[in-house]
């Protein structure tokens, strides 16, 4: 049963780096699981932690936030703020006893097509092992 489970990962990808990285993975014809649903944002710092929680509670098995490497942000410092907010959200998940493995922050540059494919592959494997998000079947959210 568990082998049939194909996770849904919501990916918030920054328009300048990670989205372009995903594009490169595609044009380079790299193979990776079709589990990620990309959402393009202008900067990873556009992602309010509430977006992540929304995706999670609506039943996404995992949420990936990806942006430029620190120091490479198109807006100079956006991703530094992302990192602080993400650390904050992660702490909240941990303290509430929720599976903090279901949220992930990764830096993927526009030239890192192989890294993009690798991140999605690894993360999909990890979530497969974790199983489906329990929020999927909950009614009283």
């Amino acid at each position: 049963m568990k082998d049939d489970f194909e996770p849904t990962i919501i990916g918030f990808l920054c328009r300048w780096c990670s989205y372009a990285g995903a594009d490169l993975a595609g044009t380079s014809r790299l193979q990776y699981p079709p589990s990620m649903l990309p959402i393009r944002v202008m900067c990873s710092s556009r992602v309010d932690p509430v977006f992540i929680i929304t995706a999670f509670l609506r039943g996404a098995d995992a949420v990936l936030v990806a942006g430029c490497h620190p120091g490479d942000c198109h807006y100079i410092e956006g991703n530094y703020y992302t990192r602080r907010r993400f650390a904050c959200l992660r702490k909240i998940f941990e303290t509430l006893g929720m599976e903090s493995d279901r949220i992930r922050l990764s830096w993927i540059s526009a030239s890192e097509g192989p890294r993009f494919a690798q991140v999605v592959t690894d993360y999909t494997d990890k979530i497969k092992k974790l199983g489906p998000n329990p929020a999927k079947k909950e009614i009283f959210l």
Binding site: Y81, A87, C88, R90
Partner: peptide
Amino acid sequence: VPLTIFEKEELTEVED
């Protein structure tokens, strides 16, 4: 307020 500032080298443990 910490969420309005940052350090360039920090919190690497939350990155993957």
